[in-house]
Design a binder for these strands. Structure first.
Length: 706
RNA sequence: GCGCCCUUAGCUCAGUUGGUAGAGCAGCCGCUUUACACGCGGAAGGUCGGGAGUUCAAAUCUCUCAGGGCGCACCA
């Protein structure tokens, strides 16, 4: 008997030994797996962002994937769990800029290459810490294939994709209304923004013969178009294009009436003025009618000279002063103080974004979303949760073109070159090489999702790497917040570049919430780190708590009590093993042992458990499989089977005792196998102490007979 | 405003072709029983959010109301 069995299970001392053993075996790499494995099984890990440590979301993510991988590895498949990390462009640069701010520095004015180098070093340091975290969770991923989105090979391939899409007419450069983050000085795509409910005064002003409403008087300096609905009876005597002389903020101007269906007759007076430069809706109206556009607010969020005496003021400062001026001029009709509306903010930084008109690179989404939806209709991939399929379809049915250029240095440089930029003779060449001396490269980088959308392809060596044999992968398991961001992009890039979706099943796990069902956040102080939990209760316990009661698609509450319960379970398994090994003796009874009827029944029950666990993992119901195992091992094997066996084991040698020994041994070995994907450390540790030659990790998954 | 999801024991949740409810945690009462006090045994706890309907039968299907959450749109 191994001496460590005499003490309670100690995760700390066992886990590191076991992980080293696994790593040394080389079995994380599918090329080294024993036996003939014709069937492949591959999961690409969502690249954790290389700018911080693992949080509970990652914990759930990694645990679920590793369970599937370990299960399939034991079932004799050639399994690859592919690790990697993402540079997470804007997010990482934001994190770094905050760091700079703390040091009293700023990225503005910094040399591009110096800034890039600094962030690169910062990310490399974090990346290694994060990779250690991933190992700590027992992840059986193939580190020899570890990749990073800014590796030259990947950068080059992502740039190739851009060129191909440009040549295919799927990418264009255009001056369009974009979301501008004035603090961080970059444009953002729709999905990188959120809405925040705000209560702001809503002002009604006299605009010639009309009354118009706005919450943003500071944008109104240049408003010279008033828009009404073509069917609005109140304005039936006015003609489209009719001109008026009116008095406005900074004096008289000539206004033009426009009839457009965008105006809602139900809203206030039914008349609105438009500011095409600072509103996406207004921009569209202006484009339809070929109207002038003028910038009112600069890139820093300050008013431009058109605002005359308000020039240079920030919005918050200027707004009340402008209202005051209009009131003095007798143009203020009324103020609605109860007005609530949603303000668009930058999802990462919380900064209110300003619509601006800017030349940017866009991906034409419609052909791509169409391709993805048709593939879904053909059943080439499926969502495990119907709910998410609905959300996905809804989103894919309104394909807004995707702004992929970011004005930050931390990312993959857009391979485009300009000559005579911003002039009438502007020329563009898309190429990885500089076309000539008088060409300058676009300073912008790609939106992170442009590269991570190609992640399954790039990591598997698209177009002709040998790992492409794993494409398409088996399942994409990720957080439901990525239902728009990441999943559709991977599907679209996969279909576009390689004609096949990158994965068959899409599994969304929910958010990990605290014990009261609230979102974990640093400011609330309710964050549970998977690494801290693993330190305190053991990795197996932590993994179990990420699985049980965590069905596909639903959020999950996590508490220390829950993890503590599974720490006790790990110890229980430990003690069951000790008891059985002590009583079975050194020579294990073999398969030819005659079994008593009651022992045969116990093995039939074991068979049922095997069946349940196997089928539920196949159905991605790891939550139910884990719960069932917990119940079986503790309340059936320990509480009933072991208790009932004591009398026989303590009795005289004979057929009955031999049968019991054989049965208990089979129950133990099978239970350890079934538990292994969920609790890899304690089970492997026991397996080793049992004197088995093969590692549990590559043992054969138990067969069930019915 | 449009759409989606959820509501089962104190807490977190199972209950997937309709057959009068289950688990874990917490709590309660006993027990140093020779694998384990990170333990063992036991008891208690729910008119399955409210209402109506379909059915021999509803937690499960339909409608409706209430509460909670999410997505989309909205700086007219």
């Amino acid at each position: 008997m191994d001496e460590s069995f005499l003490k309670p299970y100690d995760p700390k001392s066992e886990e590191s030994k076991v992980y080293t053993l696994w790593e040394k075996s080389g079995y994380f790499n599918p090329d080294n797996l024993p036996g003939n494995r014709p069937e492949k099984y591959c999961i690409v890990m969502p690249p954790p962002n290389a700018n911080g440590r693992l949080h509970s979301g990652h914990g759930a993510d990694i645990t679920l994937k590793d369970i599937l991988i370990r299960f399939n590895r034991m079932r004799g498949k050639k399994t690859l769990l592919l690790p990697g990390s993402d540079h997470a462009g804007f997010e990482t640069q934001g994190v770094y800029e905050k760091k700079l701010q703390k040091e009293g520095r700023s990225r503005f004015g910094m040399n591009r290459d110096d800034l890039y180098k600094e962030i690169y070093d910062f990310v490399m340091d974090n990346k290694h810490i994060m990779e250690d975290d991933v190992k700590k969770l027992g992840t059986s991923c193939d580190w020899s294939r570890n990749t990073f989105t800014l590796e030259p090979e990947i950068v080059s391939k992502v740039q190739d994709t851009f060129r191909k899409m440009y040549e295919d007419g799927l990418i264009y450069r255009g001056k369009r209304s974009i979301h501008w983050n004035p603090k961080y000085q970059t444009s953002l795509s729709d999905i990188e923004t959120d809405f925040e409910e705000r209560k702001d005064p809503f002002y009604y002003f006299k605009y010639g013969p009309f009354t118009i409403g706005t919450a943003r008087p500071e944008t109104k300096f240049g408003d010279k178009y008033v828009v009404v609905h073509p069917d609005d009876k109140r304005y039936k005597d006015y003609d489209n294009g009719q001109k008026f002389e009116i008095e406005w903020i900074n004096g008289p101007l000539t206004a033009t009436l426009i009839k457009d269906e965008a105006a809602d007759p139900e809203m206030g007076s039914g008349a609105m003025t438009i500011t095409p430069w600072h509103s996406a809706v207004d921009f569209e109206i202006a484009k339809r009618h070929n109207l002038d556009m003028e910038q009112i607010i600069d890139w820093q969020g300050k008013l431009l000279p058109i605002a005359e005496e308000f020039t240079g003021m920030r919005i918050a400062e200027a707004r009340p002063k402008i209202v005051e001026k209009l009131e003095k001029k007798g143009l203020l009709v009324k103020i609605d103080e109860e007005y609530t509306h949603a303000v668009r903010i930058c999802e990462r930084t919380g900064v209110v974004v300003e619509p601006q008109v800017k030349d940017q690179w866009f991906v034409k989404m419609e052909p791509l979303t169409k391709m993805a939806l048709e593939s879904l209709d053909r059943g080439e991939y499926r969502f495990l949760t119907e709910h998410h399929e609905k959300i996905f379809r809804h989103w894919m049915n309104r394909p807004l073109d995707w702004n992929i250029s970011r004005q930050i240095v931390w990312g993959i440089r857009i391979p485009a070159w300009f000559r005579n930029k911003d002039s009438e003779q502007e020329e563009i060449i898309v190429s990885k090489q500089k076309p000539g001396d008088d060409w300058e490269q676009d300073p912008d980088t790609f939106d992170t999702w442009f590269s991570s959308g190609q992640w399954p392809l790039m990591t598997l060596g698209y177009p002709d790497g040998k790992d492409m044999e794993y494409y398409p992968t088996d399942v994409m398991e990720t957080g439901s917040d990525l239902v728009f961001k990441w999943v559709p992009r991977m599907i679209m890039f996969g279909l576009y570049l390689n004609k096949k979706v990158p994965f068959r099943d899409v599994y969304f796990h929910g958010m990990i919430l605290d014990e009261k069902g609230k979102k974990m956040s640093k400011s609330k102080g309710n964050v549970l780190s998977p690494i801290d939990l693993a330190d305190e209760f053991g990795t197996d316990a932590t993994r179990m708590s990420f699985v049980v009661a965590n069905p596909p698609g639903a959020n999950m509450s996590l508490s220390k009590d829950k993890v503590r319960a599974y720490k006790k379970f790990a110890n229980k398994i430990w003690n069951i093993s000790r008891f059985i090994l002590e009583n079975v003796g050194s020579e294990t009874p073999d398969g030819n042992t005659n079994l008593t009827d009651s022992d045969k029944k116990l093995l039939e029950k074991l068979d049922e458990e095997t069946k349940f666990v196997t089928e539920h993992i196949e159905k991605y119901r790891m939550d139910l499989a884990a719960e069932r195992l917990y119940h079986y091992v503790w309340h059936e094997v320990a509480d009933i089977i072991l208790e009932d066996s004591k009398e026989i084991l303590n009795g005289p040698d004979g057929v009955e005792k031999k049968s019991k020994q054989r049965t208990l041994y089979v129950i133990l070995a099978t239970s350890l196998k079934l538990l292994h994907p969920f609790m890899p450390f304690v089970t492997e540790s026991i397996w080793q102490k049992m004197g088995n030659e093969k590692m549990l990790m590559v043992e054969e998954w138990p067969q069930h007979t019915n």
